[in-house]
Design a protein around this nucleic acid. Structure first.
Lengths: 200, 200, 200, 200
DNA sequence: CATGAATGAGTCTTCATTCAT
DNA sequence: AATGAATGAAGACTCATTCAT
């Protein structure tokens, strides 16, 4: 049966581009590589995307959306005490690390390769960072308003810091040969740090 | 004897390359751009470096050395109580943020653009990360052994986390229009987080 | 299907390369010259050949094949007496000189320009020489075994000498303004020399 | 003692150039290679020669002069019978082969590499060929006029042929691992061919 | 005289993009 | 809609040549 319009084509090209960009980097990957990864003619890529950069934009957006889905899966106002919040942080952490572990090059792809393409892509990434930080901020504000987080917590900056810890951690875990134990150690260390500090 | 080799030439080319790579990114910057930034012929670049990548390696190494100088300026075993350690962290933070603020593109250059060049450069960067983390670990171990940090502190992982916070922060501060107040906020939030946690 | 690959393209590029290499020499001829000789984009050359040297290899191989076709057109065991062999030598000579006269730069191209490219091409040429000499040797051995050539003829070395005479002659004839009379003189002188010697 | 003008310098550069051109070919040899072969600065080459091509011209001329010295060492009118002429041919042959054996790359250098430089060098080489052929012609004419060579010998063309045999032979001998036995075989085969022909 | 640092013209080669089929 | 042959802009790199020292 002749399918006039391949509905999955665009998505399939993005899958292939994701894989190839992750494997070779954006600059080293040619449009022909994306196409041959999929076994299609490289002219076909141009029926679905303006140009190579356009593919990179779509790959980045899709990756950021997936990350956002994890970050926004919980409801910030759902928690009423410290233990519940700790549980929430741990759940998000596990899911995020799973995401990055399932696709070990994801961190490098998003935070290095695609960020290096040009200012436009970098801006997209920074905006996503802000969105994520906004979510984290909502969690923190909820905790402060409900009294189980410090009243004088610098919510805005701390949100950025927490995000940094989480993404940096996810990226590092993804680099590991056997990510599972590292993931557990990382989440434990992070929650201890957040909730208890380092002091004796 | 012929016009004696300018001892500053190599260094000057690295300065120019640092600036141009930071401005346009590694891929978009041509060797001709590096040369014209300095007002020299582009063939001259090849008298001091094997090729364009070799310039990138040298730029990265120099930048990492500068960062290392800040990180390793203090003596890990110098502190005997929590307050002294807090001061040490703050001093390193201030110097690091000053470094990144003096050269706002440094973070992007080192952690994004040059890391995206190829696996070799990325490995160099990761090795530097490990060195930095080793230093941080020494600080933490000192604190644990002297009893002013938690006995059950996961020093290794926490060192990575702390490093992540610091570098992520430095990168973010560097992006700001007016970095000074952001720097102060960031350092305060970081030290509060580290030493007090977020809990009420 | 896309514009189907021109089956003659590769051959046409070799024709153009043959002409341009012969006119300007290998080193002085740019890939752009090959392409513009044919009125195509110079990138197209790289769709059919690895690189410039690869074009030279193909040009040389084709030229050597053409020469081989002339040399191997006759059957070494076909002749039973001196006159028949003399006729055979003359026929090969005529055809060879015609080949070189039809393409006056062929000798220079094959024996000088392409031989100067690098050791690899030179080796190809030397191997072809050996093949040709093997053929000439077969002719001589046939004559010796049938008794119409000297029993003590040094077949191996003489084969090389005869080849040298023939190719050197072809090259010289090709250089002449009006090659026809020179060709006839050369063939006559060669056969006289071979069959009668120079002595009174 | 300070020698203001190095008298041997020019000659030494030609020696170095001869060696380097022979080793790497003209195109692949850089002016810097010539200089470093001699341990001098490459700017110095330009105090003795206009440019790289000028060096090649001088190398070629010197090589051709050396060959000419061998070819012209004997007096064409010296011989009065066939045996004496045969001896003369053998003597020239031995000396020529010695020359090429002492410098195995000489043949390739003169007849291939330098001939491929450009039309000007090729013309120089062709003119030398003619000079050599003129000498051989004088030998042959002497023999004809004294009656020990065929009266109907095509002296002009045969001179070219004989030259071809000799130079081709010298070049082939030079390529051999152990040139001595090949040289002897070649000279024997050549004189037999010249004086007796190949016929039974 | 000698040097070698500097230069930039010249070339090869890659690859994103177009478009005839 | 899909293809892949063709294209040429772009850029890395080499090296002959110059000239200040």
């Amino acid at each position: 049966m002749a399918r006039t319009s391949q509905p999955g084509r665009r998505e399939a090209i993005l899958d292939a581009a994701h894989a190839v960009f992750a494997r070779k980097g954006y600059a080293a990957a040619g449009v022909a590589d994306l196409a041959s990864e999929l076994g299609i003619g490289h002219g076909t890529v141009y029926r679905y995307f303006e140009n190579k950069r356009d593919v990179a934009v779509a790959v980045l957006d899709r990756a950021l959306t997936r990350i956002a889905e994890v970050v926004t899966a919980e409801d910030p106002s759902d928690t009423d005490d410290l233990d519940a919040y700790r549980g929430q942080v741990e759940r998000i952490g596990y899911r995020l690390y799973d995401l990055f572990a399932a696709d070990p090059a994801l961190g490098r792809l998003v935070f290095v390769d695609l960020a290096a393409v040009d200012d436009g892509l970098r801006d997209r990434l920074l905006r996503a960072y802000q969105t994520f930080a906004g979510y984290t901020e909502a969690y923190l504000r909820n905790g402060v308003s409900k009294g189980f987080l410090r009243a004088d917590l610098e919510v805005e900056t701390t949100a950025l810091i927490v995000n940094g810890i989480i993404f940096e951690g996810a990226a590092q875990v993804a680099r590991a040969i056997d990510p599972r134990p590292l993931r557990d150690r990382w989440i434990r260390a992070t929650t201890r740090l957040l909730f208890d500090g380092i002091a004796a």
